[in-house]
Design a protein around this nucleic acid. Structure first.
Lengths: 174, 174
DNA sequence: GCATTATAGTTAGGAAGCTAACTATGTCAA
DNA sequence: TTGACATAGTTAGCTTCCTAACTATAATGC
C-alpha cells in the first residue's frame, strides 16, 4: 500500500481548535482532534513501512502486488483483477507490473483463451523476495503493535469501523 | 494534508492471514489485521476529505497552508516555517504557494529585514475561501465522527499514541 | 575585513499515482 | 453475420510529491 500525506507535524492545540470553533460554530473539537490524530499516525505508519520496504528494494505498490499473487494458489492473476484488489487503476497496475517484471519478480504469460488478457505469474525470484521481506515486516510489525493487547486491538478495529461507516457524510452531495 | 495509498480494497481474511502465518511464523495475526485496518480507514478518510475539498476548488496541501496562516494572529508566515509545520519540503511549499498566489488566496510580501526571506500573507480572498470551506468541512466531519462518543474518542487517541510509540520499530536499522 | 559556512527560496528532474484515449479482442442481438 | 457495445491492457499527458543543485543573503570566526 502507498500512503502520502502532509505530515501534520503541527496538529492544532486545543487552544487553536477553540479559536477556530469561535469563528466556525459547527466545529466539533474532539471530532477534529481524533480525525487529525488518526490521519497523522496512519501517515507516519505508512512512511515507516516505506522505509522498511525500501531496504529490500521494494516500493509499497509492488510489494502489495507480490502479496496478492502469493495469496493465489496458482500464484497467478490478471492485471485487471490485481488492480481491482489493490484499489488502483489498470493503468497504474501496468506500471507496477512493468517494474516487477524488469526485476524478474513476476512474468507476463500470454494465454490462448482470451487473447485480450495476460496472466501475471509470481516467479521463484518473486517468492524468494517475499521470503526475505515478509519475516522482516512481520517481526517489525509485531514490535510496533506490541503496545496494544488483544482486547485493545479489537476495540480499535471496532472504532475504525464506526468511523468508516461515517465516511459517506464527508462526500455526500449535501 | 495529503494521503495516498493503495486502497487495500481487499484486506486479507483471517484465513489468508493464517496461511501466511504458516509460512512466516513471526506473523502476529491481530497486529497485521489492526495495522491494515487502520491504514485502510485512514486512506479512505483522506480520499473523502479530498473529494470534499475539491468541491471548493481546493487541494489538501493548499487547504492546509491556508489553515496554518489563519492560525497566526498576523495571518502571515514564511515558506520555511510553513513547510516545517506542514511536514513537506521547502520545494514542495514553493509549489503550494505558487498555486495559492495564482488564485489570489495568499500573497508574497518582500521584507527588508532579511532579504533572503519572503512573508506569505493570507489575503481577504483567502480568508473568505476558508469561511466557505471550513463550515462545510466541520459540519461533515461532525457527522462522520458521530458514531464515536467522547469516551471512545479519547480511547482512540490513546491507542493511536501507543501505536505511534511503536513506529520506530518499523524503521530501526535492526 | 574577509573567507567560510549556514539559511531562504527556487528550479530542474524523477517517481508514482491519476484520467482519458487508444488498440485489440470478445459478446450479443437484430 | 455483422454492427454496436463491452472488456483487457497499454500509452500519453497531468499532478504533486520528492531530492539535489543552485542563487542570493546573512552570520560566524580567524
Amino acid at each position: 500500500m502507498l500512503l502520502i500525506m502532509l505530515e501534520l507535524k503541527d496538529l492544532p492545540t486545543t487552544g487553536v481548535l477553540h479559536k477556530f470553533a469561535e469563528r466556525y460554530p459547527d466545529a466539533d473539537i474532539t471530532a477534529v482532534s481524533s480525525f487529525l490524530h488518526l490521519l497523522r499516525v496512519a501517515t507516519d505508519l505508512s512512511i515507516a513501512l516505506d522505509t522498511c520496504l525500501s531496504k529490500h528494494g521494494l516500493l509499497q505498490g509492488r510489494w502489495w502486488v507480490l502479496i496478492l499473487l502469493m495469496r493465489e494458489d496458482s500464484h497467478t492473476s490478471t492485471p485487471s483483477v490485481l488492480a481491482s484488489k489493490a484499489g488502483v487503476t489498470r493503468a497504474t497496475m501496468t506500471g507496477l507490473i512493468d517494474g516487477l517484471e524488469q526485476g524478474g519478480l513476476v512474468e507476463r504469460v500470454f494465454t490462448k483463451n482470451d487473447r485480450r488478457s495476460v496472466l501475471i505469474h509470481l516467479t521463484d525470484a518473486g517468492q524468494a523476495k517475499l521470503d526475505t521481506v515478509m519475516p522482516d515486516y512481520y517481526q517489525r510489525l509485531r514490535l510496533c503493535m506490541k503496545g496494544l493487547n488483544e482486547a485493545q486491538r479489537i476495540q480499535l478495529e471496532q472504532m475504525l469501523d464506526l468511523i468508516n461507516a461515517g465516511i459517506p457524510a464527508l462526500t455526500n452531495p449535501k
